[in-house]
């Protein structure tokens, strides 16, 4: 089953930045890492997939259904987004922020149902944030906050999770914590995950396949060992790159060379 099919997608911002001729497929239950240099169009691609932006041409289908044909709430029941920045203007508690993820399922004025409470509880449980439910977002550490934002996305009960730089601004320990969480969500919820990251090591470590973008087009796509090759990455990033293997785990390691 194909979770996401993108065919010949094009989009242009008013300030000239573009995505052009993007095509790829993500299988259900797969983790796709989207990598590439700055202004390659990675975040724009996530915005198009979550229907915040509408493509100029091209087609996106989610589980065989045309994204155009879905209502906004249907989209939000299929796709949840963990944005790069998340700030709340008023002092909502963690519990309230996570419960907001239930909006795509709400009816009428939107008082929570038992089903809403159960889904929010489960999301808090899975991300290990239940003990934070009464706190405010600005009382949390970076790692805690990121898990709360993921919990909000899980409360949507989506089939596809989009994450924009989920490990940015986090220390090693918390980066690994997020990676373990994503692996568990893939295994236990069968979520399809699309992950945008600048961190090539993390992307290579947790993705089944990688999509390398540059200047708004797809440079290469494939399994991590196919994409993480010095000549490919050097042409994408324009600097010398060393690629090796971690002797203990056998994982690919990538380092830029000055």
């Amino acid at each position: 089953m194909k979770a996401v099919e993108v065919h010949d997608l094009a989009f242009r911002y008013r300030n000239g930045r573009v995505l052009d001729g993007i095509s790829f497929v993500v299988e259900a239950g797969e983790v796709l890492g989207v990598i590439g240099p700055n202004s390659a169009g990675k975040t724009t691609l996530l915005r198009l997939l979550s229907r915040v932006l509408v493509p100029e041409t091209g087609k996106i289908t989610l589980f065989g259904r045309d994204l155009d044909a879905l209502s906004k709430r249907e989209v939000a029941r299929t796709v949840a987004v963990v944005p790069q920045e998340f700030q709340v203007a008023f002092p909502f508690t963690v519990g309230q922020v996570v419960a907001m993820g239930r909006y795509p399922h709400a009816r009428g004025i939107g008082f929570e149902t038992g089903e809403d409470r159960r889904a929010a509880e489960q999301a808090l449980e899975e991300t290990g944030t239940r003990h934070l439910a009464g706190k405010y977002l600005d009382q949390l550490s970076g790692g805690e906050k990121q898990r709360v934002v993921i919990a909000r996305a899980l409360a949507q009960e989506p089939r596809i999770l989009l994450l924009d730089e989920p490990m940015a601004h986090l220390d090693f320990n918390h980066q690994m914590e997020i990676l373990r969480l994503l692996r568990r969500l893939k295994a236990e919820r069968g979520l399809t995950i699309i992950l945008v990251s600048h961190d090539l090591n993390a992307a290579a470590g947790c993705s089944d396949r990688l999509l390398l973008l540059k200047g708004g087009t797809v440079l290469t796509a494939g399994r991590p060992e196919e994409v993480m090759r010095a000549e490919i990455l050097e042409s994408a990033y324009g600097c010398p790159i060393w690629i090796g293997t971690d002797p203990q785990t056998g994982m690919i390691r990538i380092l830029p060379r000055p």
């Binding site: 915005r47 979550s50 229907r51 915040v52 209502s71 906004k72 709430r73 249907e74 989209v75 939000a76 029941r77 796709v79 949840a80 987004v81 944005p83 998340f86 700030q87 709340v88 203007a89 008023f90 909502f92 309230q96 922020v97 907001m100 993820g101 909006y103 795509p104 709400a106 004025i109 939107g110 949507q156």
Partner: peptide
């Protein structure tokens, strides 16, 4: 205004975040 109470809560996290939850 009251019919929009829940979408107004979502707007506290910004318009893009609200749109990604299916609000308009």
């Amino acid at each position: 205004i009251y019919l929009q109470a829940l979408p107004l809560n979502l707007l506290a996290a910004g318009e893009e975040a609200a749109a990604q939850l299916g609000a308009e």
